[in-house]
Nucleic acid binder design. Structure first.
Length: 477
DNA sequence: GAGTTTGAAACT
DNA sequence: CAGTTTCAAACTC
């Protein structure tokens, strides 16, 4: 996801197709992330080890590294902010703020070379601190400013990246540029950072959300003895290799979307808006798949036959049946609660099915499949509903609102329709204007934060889809 | 904020 | 592959 987003952004920014510089055969990481490394090799010192470099101080006098650190803290999306012009020109010409900023952002991601499964995923996003929706605002605003949206959150379909779903929501609100802007900002902000709290894993295991997401830990993290930092890059990479040696897909997206909205390949009744499913399935015993302990639930996807859960009541879709058909009080309650609390979950977007406008040259699914997702979804409690992205295509003509409204929509009624969605303060917001925020170093700086026309946004989305790299198919053989 | 619960990840 | 342990997030109080 990230990969593609990066590409998108790039194109969106420069008007060029990033892919033109990529073979398209390499993973996102190798393409995007590797680049930073390669380039970084030359500037590595300058960035991490050479404090003597120019542009060390920000306007506020804060050491650039600190500031960079904050920037790095942002999620992949930021990282993906790839701008050739920035790299080629800025680095040379001393546009420190810009180039460093972008570079730093990229560095924020771990460079996971050619991992079979691909590299970063925000699966992570798993945690993106709660609130991040896949492509949420970040998709729009980020793309607008040439940054890559945070994919983690999103779910990638076999042949495309899925946009966040818009759950419910007043059409009028969605159509209101101002409201859309506000919502997007919120989402983007929430996507900005993800904080872990690891104490014993050194942030070098998948227990660590940052590590699992392919991100370096940053200040907002409360981890202890953290090795998941650029200065320990070698350790991080080595650890990752080890993990991947055990499980090549360890860093692959956990949630994938199936193209069939009615029933997925697993055969279960699919109640999930975009037919997304957890790749491996959960193994819940006591949570009934109604709490975030459940990865499926957390990702906002229904359980599938691949799940080994017991007493599944996943409000997004149970192995057998879904909450909609349930009159069960507990289940309904769970649905509502879930929907209102976090359902922002996966913002799953479909690749043209729900949004024909977004249709992208659809590659052979059997060859390009890959789903990218992440817990991110769980962090965008409001993104779904507040984000107009899902229905973005509608803005361009489609009037079929129902098509972009997940069945869970009804469960989202509790979410404020107008105004800025409430997002827990503890959740890290992007500091668009204040990168040095104490709580959230991750900055989603948005130089050109103007809310461009929806057409531009969607154009970006198309680019994203097109840019989706080939990932191993998670689809069942 | 501390303690408990939970299930994924890691280990054996 | 199954059972157990470790871990950190989610949750409860």
């Amino acid at each position: 996801m990230l990969t593609m987003n990066s590409s998108i952004i790039h194109e969106n920014t420069d008007g060029r197709d990033w892919r033109t510089t990529n073979s398209g055969t390499t993973s996102f990481i190798s393409n995007i992330l590797q680049f930073p490394l390669d380039k970084a090799n030359n500037s590595e010192n300058a960035e991490f080890g050479d404090p003597s470099g120019s542009c060390k101080q920000s306007e506020s006098g804060e050491p650039v590294m600190d500031r960079m650190h904050g920037i790095l803290s942002t999620c992949l999306p930021d990282e993906l902010v790839v701008n050739d012009s920035g790299l080629k020109k800025d680095d040379k010409e001393g546009n420190c703020n810009e180039s460093n900023h972008q570079f730093s952002i990229r560095r924020r991601c771990l460079v996971f070379e050619k991992s079979p499964g691909f590299g970063l995923h925000l699966n992570s996003l798993p945690n993106i601190p709660k609130g991040q929706s896949p492509l949420s605002k970040s998709t729009l605003s980020s793309t607008n400013r040439g940054e890559v949206p945070d994919d983690n959150k999103g779910v990638v379909t076999e042949n495309s990246y899925e946009m966040p779903a818009t759950f419910g929501g007043n059409e009028a609100d969605h159509n209101s540029p101002e409201k859309k802007r506000q919502k997007f900002e919120l989402v983007e902000e929430s996507v900005a950072c993800k904080r872990c709290n690891c104490k014993r894993s050194k942030c070098l295991k998948l227990y660590c959300d940052c590590f699992a997401a392919g991100l370096y830990c940053i200040e907002p993290c409360s981890c202890q003895d953290c090795f998941n930092k650029p200065i320990h890059e070698n350790v991080v990479l080595e650890t990752r290799r080890q993990i991947e040696s055990r499980n090549p897909l360890a860093f692959a997206p956990k949630v994938i979307r199936t193209t069939n909205g009615v029933s997925d390949s697993m055969g279960e009744i699919n109640k999930t808006p975009a037919s997304a499913r957890h790749k491996r399935g959960c193994n819940c015993k006591r949570s009934s798949c109604l709490k975030k302990y459940c990865e499926c639930f957390q990702a906002g996807v229904g359980c599938s036959l691949s799940c080994r859960c017991e007493g599944c009541k996943n409000s997004f879709g149970r192995k057998e049946g879904g909450c909609e058909s349930e009159s069960d009080g507990d289940n309904l309650e769970a649905c509502e609660k879930n929907a209102s609390e976090k359902s922002s979950h996966d913002t799953v977007i479909s690749n043209g099915q729900e949004h024909p406008d977004l249709s992208v040259p659809s590659p052979d699914i059997s060859r390009l499949p890959f789903a990218y997702s992440g817990k991110l979804a769980a962090f965008f409690p409001h993104s779904i509903k507040s984000s107009p992205q899902l229905c973005g295509t509608q803005e361009q003509g489609s009037s079929d609102t129902s098509s972009c409204k997940p069945k869970l929509e009804s469960n989202l009624d509790g979410i404020p329709e107008s105004g800025t969605p409430e997002i827990p303060k503890h959740k890290c917001f992007t500091l668009v204007s204040n990168p040095t925020s104490p709580n959230c170093k991750g900055v989603f700086s948005t130089p050109n934060h103007d809310s461009t026309s929806s057409s531009t946004k969607w154009r970006s989305r198309k680019l994203i889809l097109r840019s989706v790299p080939s990932f191993p198919s998670f689809s069942p053989p």
